[in-house]
Design a protein around this nucleic acid. Structure first.
Lengths: 183, 183
DNA sequence: TATTGTTATACTCTATAACTATA
DNA sequence: TATAGTTATAGAGTATAACAATA
């Protein structure tokens, strides 16, 4: 005999293969994020957000406004201020008023921050390689990138978290999906 | 001209297509988790962990020990106790000593908990469908499930978080990857 | 002795709203 | 008026270690 459905009558359950994809995705990414976080914390005493902030700075020209950073990283502005404060206290970044717009804060990566990234990035890549990248064929890499880009665009296409945000529309995929060309 | 590499000389950068897969995966799952969390909070005032606890109970016979629950859900035991406490205070689950093992706590889903799941599950599925499942072809579903199952097994195969755990080895994929057959 | 689970405690992170200053 | 950012504050969640009870 089979279990009774948890869904109300008339609700058609999702295709089992898709459901399996969803569950496997949830579990695998949760485990992967755990491993990555552990590594970043152990090697550089960095939270994932802090690492992302530094990476974004290190991958570009070393500067960004708080708004630039907040847009890509799903954060609230105050949360970003908090994390940036931690980075600044450690001397990994500096914050100054932007000359262009006196309201804006220009975040600049410090040499110590760049050094830290250079120190921990190889290990980070090793973790990701071992637990994910090495398990993919070339074809699968393309497929996965394809699928996830589609999902990202789909989610970013609607008013999701922006309803809560102060910033206006500008819902034109401001995220940094392309991997930095500096690896 | 191109940016200087962030990697030390001698370190071979990962294949760009794999890197792209990794970045897209990170961003897409982060956005997806955000949406799902927002829905669960808005509709049922549940955290993701609380939802997972209830789902695991509702998908089985309605009972589980704290250890059973802690094994699948990446949690520390104290964190699980905290979340279970919240659920119990709301009358969504009950906790009693196990008759088999007087040390163990038997967690049982309450009718209110089952009702809550029945109420919010359709919306949850709708979110996941809209933002993920509907974007996949049958073939892609299979591919994604295949890839992520491999990743999960790879990560669970080693001593990852268990080094921190109190529980002994038993590293035999205790996770609940199979989607509940009750949807 | 080892295992199950809880508690005490401290800490990290996040979000909301109020506030300042500039555009 | 709207935007950029900070701050104050409060709450949610997590982890560690110590603990009690049972195996």
């Amino acid at each position: 005999m089979s279990e009774p459905s948890l869904l109300p009558p008339g609700t058609d359950p999702p295709d089992p293969r898709r459901l399996q994809a969803y569950f496997a995705l949830s579990e695998a990414t949760s485990l992967l994020n755990d491993q990555v976080e552990q590594h970043l914390r152990a090697e550089g005493n960095l939270s994932t957000v802090q690492f992302q902030i530094l990476m974004r700075l290190a991958s570009g020209d070393g500067h960004a406004t708080m708004t630039d950073l907040a847009d890509g990283l799903v954060h609230s502005r105050s949360g970003l201020t908090y994390q940036a404060g931690l980075l600044e206290r450690r001397g990994l970044i500096s914050r100054d008023r932007s000359p262009d717009d006196e309201r804006a804060t220009l975040v600049t990566i410090a040499e110590e921050g760049a050094e830290l990234i250079r120190r921990i990035l190889p290990g980070h890549i090793h973790v990701v390689r071992t637990l994910l990248l090495d398990l993919l064929t070339d074809q699968e890499s393309d497929q996965l990138a394809d699928i996830m880009t589609r999902v990202r665009d789909r989610i970013r296409a609607e008013p999701p978290r922006s309803a809560r945000r102060r910033r206006g529309p500008k819902r034109h995929l401001p995220g940094a999906t392309e991997p930095p060309a500096v690896l």
